[in-house]
């Protein structure tokens, strides 16, 4: 298969099931909503070392938020329910509670499984906090030096999140790879239910499981796709490829990831790009397989 002269390899991305939450952060202005959201999603690129993966899903207009202020929707993924609860409590506590004017609401109101992150944080109020129920939803008003921080008590726990959707952009130069990756990120940006947890939505250090040279490593560089060691390893790079960048996608459903991969790959098929590939572990580790040629069919 080729798209505008770019070869689509006959392979698949292998992804995993994760627990997910959507957090709505609002602020007096978009600047302050983003300030909290940026911090909340900081250092959350990979569960391997960050314990969760998180990023901004999209900006929200005042008519989309519970308190009619500018807002940001954030998606956060973790390996299990307990981990998700811990990460939410830590991150909301350190980044929303602390941020001037910011409030925090659940973005998955239909989810029956709940995580009581706001309830855990209420004790910061040292028994001076106030509970309020509006439209059947409980909120906590925690006194802070600025006035009050408003936090929703519970957050929906989505048990069918998917993490690790991906595709690789094989290009003839690092500049061409970056331009294609930026185009893919721009195309995916704002897709409902999907985030790109890595810096700028792009990964340069794709990994393989374990390491050949060191014991105990969980992951090490994906040398098969590293151009500088092409003669020293069993390379997967076709002739003429001098740089590879990866787009990693987490989503609330396989369909959301598949749709985002489709628009991202299409945008990445541009001059200087040799081929699109994907990362997998042979298909035996992750239950979700996104075959590139099926996605792009």
């Amino acid at each position: 298969m080729e798209i505008r002269g770019v070869h689509i390899e006959d392979t698949f991305a292998e992804a995993f099931g994760m627990r997910a939450a959507r957090v709505i952060i609002t602020g007096r202005t978009e600047k302050w909503a983003l300030a909290a959201a940026t911090k909340l999603t900081g250092f959350a690129t990979s569960v391997i070392a960050c314990k969760c993966e998180a990023a901004i899903e999209r900006l929200l207009t005042p008519d989309e938020t519970p308190d009619a202020r500018p807002g940001v929707a954030v998606l956060l993924f973790a390996m299990d329910s307990e981990g998700l609860a811990k990460r939410l409590t830590e991150r909301i506590g350190q980044t929303v509670l602390t941020c001037p004017t910011a409030s925090c609401f659940d973005g998955l109101p239909g989810a029956t499984d709940r995580v009581n992150a706001g309830r855990a944080l209420r004790v910061f109020g040292d028994r001076l906090q106030i509970s309020k129920v509006v439209d059947g939803i409980r909120y906590w008003r925690v006194p802070v030096m600025e006035g009050e921080c408003l936090l929703q008590e519970s957050f929906g726990l989505h048990k069918k999140g998917v993490a690790g959707g991906n595709f690789l952009i094989l290009a003839n130069s690092d500049a061409a790879a970056l331009a294609a990756a930026e185009a893919a990120v721009a195309a995916i940006d704002g897709t409902p239910g999907v985030i790109l947890p890595f810096p700028g939505g792009v990964v340069r250090s794709g990994s393989k499981v374990g390491a050949r040279g060191y014991k105990g490593m969980i992951a090490s560089t994906n040398d098969a796709y590293c151009p500088t060691v092409r003669p020293l390893t069993e390379t997967a790079l076709p002739e003429g490829v001098n740089a590879v960048l990866e787009i990693v996608l987490d989503g609330l459903s396989p369909e959301a990831i598949s749709g985002a991969m489709r628009v991202g790959i299409d945008a990445a098929c541009r001059p200087g790009v040799h081929a699109i590939s994907a990362g997998n572990y042979g298909g035996e580790l992750g239950p979700y397989h996104f075959h590139l040629r099926t996605v792009m069919a």
Binding site: P66, D67, A68, R69, S103, I130, K132, V134, D135, Y139, R141, G147, E148, C149, L150
Partner: peptide, 12 residues
């Protein structure tokens, strides 16, 4: 002050 809860309530 501007109570954030009142803003939420009035919006509701």
């Amino acid at each position: 002050y501007e109570p954030p809860f009142v803003r939420l309530l009035m919006t509701h």
